[in-house]
Design a protein around this nucleic acid. Structure first.
Lengths: 265, 265
DNA sequence: ATGCCTTTGTGAACGCGTGCACAAAGATGG
DNA sequence: CCATCTTTGTGCACGCGTTCACAAAGGCAT
């Protein structure tokens, strides 16, 4: 990467758009549920409903994978489950390591969603010597000194970081140095990685803040149209707890445009 | 606009793009770090670097909030912290409830990132009577029967769902019925909510599957080009990056997904 | 076999988000 | 007070993603 910037529009992946890739697991989940109920075929309309997306979008998504449907009938559930699993790489076993066995790391270790789709927790790693050897989710915690050897021995290419923010970049560097090329980052930090390494981040604080933004906007909307929550008792300390008694669908052009509801702190 | 009197010349209180809103917490975090180091001002270039985004994008994002910068100098850190906090609604206190106190729910309850930004865990709720009264993160667990009264009493407008998939929709309905208008969903389910209710989902399984897709693609790329790697130092010895040990499981597509992908059961 | 009906697959238009490039604005030094 | 330098704010173009709308394709009944 010493060479200049070579833009790599991740969309090149095989012609499959990134947005489509992000939806494939959603489809797979819905299809798996249908498969368990022994439903043989499903239409794009039905499946889209189950996955919570538009049917045209679903059809276009599938079109990137190939023509797996039958016109006039729909899609064969089992076949589609297999094709999507294969496309996502779930027909093979992915060993992952979790670094940082605090509350969150332990919760992830116990998380059933890992093993259910071809992901196997190869090791739990923590920097605290007092954690070493402890059993979490039936797996012994290893010390971070062994990180490199663990990654090598197990052929780990996916790492999950659940350390405090201060340690995240350092752990990330070690993981990458050991050969990990995909990282799921739960710490509230912006990780910098060399090219070729994928990082996805999950930050609940950010998610909450986004919700708060919309919540505030909703409260401001209702306030500005002179609507007081008639059924809701007094909100919590701090003010407009969130009105929203009976959310009406009165969707108009909106009285936006005027004062942005400045909240005195 | 030229006059520095009234901020907000453009009436864009509602025109803030969703993508921008999603980045505001990122900027806020970087700015908070600068503030703690008593840095008075920061340029778009520096701040963009700290937040991991393009500087032009950052400037455009800020332009939606108003003209808070000074040309030739940069942005006043403290002022920007305040403005973004206000825009995100973080100057007020947001009581939240967490429903489903399993491993993940307990981890979230302990997560410091909540309280640090105006979010306060008003209550922990679980359906298991054996959990009722237990202390988690210093908060007593309440039974789900009390859900509505808890929401009413505390003026809760944001709910976090960490239940198993099977219970998620039901819990969601009750939360919405009680007045909650924003939901953060950790269960692997597509929630259906009435209009006016915001739902954001966090699904670890999906994130891993997306990583697996790219990982598989990387492995395929390297394989097909005969290991003609870029200018990147050679990764792990054994794995060659995407190698991943590749222990294929012998079972068919059947066992996939009979586990609800959530931990507490 | 034929015509009808259902559903897929996709061409095309549209909107949003991103990044470039530059003029305007303000600080700074002489 | 003027020249210069720095940095913001934004017009513009481009590409991705979404949605509409419809022709093609296949099943099914007669």
């Amino acid at each position: 990467m010493a060479t200049g910037r070579n833009h790599r529009p991740a969309t090149r992946s095989r012609g499959i758009p990134e947005a489509t890739v992000a939806r494939l697991p959603l489809y797979l989940r819905a299809l798996t549920a249908l498969s368990e109920r022994s439903v043989p075929t499903v239409s794009s309309e039905e499946l889209a409903g189950a996955a919570g997306v538009n049917s045209a979008k679903l059809r276009k998504d599938f079109s990137y994978l190939g023509s797996y449907g039958t016109r006039g009938v729909g899609y064969d559930v089992e076949y589609l489950v297999y094709q999507i699993s294969r496309e996502l790489g779930l027909t093979q076993d992915w060993p992952v390591v979790i670094v940082g066995i605090g509350n969150l790391g332990a919760a992830l270790a116990n998380y059933g969603g890992f093993a259910s789709r071809g992901f196997r927790v190869a090791a739990l790693i923590d920097a605290d010597p007092k954690m070493t050897g402890k059993q979490v989710a039936g797996i012994g915690v290893r010390h971070v000194d062994e990180l490199e050897s663990i990654v090598h021995t197990n052929g780990v290419s996916i790492g999950v970081i659940t350390t405090p923010a201060g340690a995240a970049q350092q752990v990330c560097d070690r993981l990458v140095g050991a050969g990990v090329t995909s990282i799921l980052n739960f710490s509230p930090t912006v990780l910098s990685v060399p090219e070729g390494v994928d990082v996805r981040k999950v930050d609940l604080s950010i998610e909450l803040q986004i919700l708060a933004f919309h919540e505030q906007r909703k409260a401001a909307d209702e306030l500005s149209r002179g609507l007081r929550g008639p059924e809701r008792p007094a909100p919590a300390a701090g003010g407009t707890g969130g009105g929203a008694g009976g959310a009406r669908r009165g969707e108009g052009p909106g009285p936006d445009g005027d004062i942005p509801a400045v909240m005195p702190a």
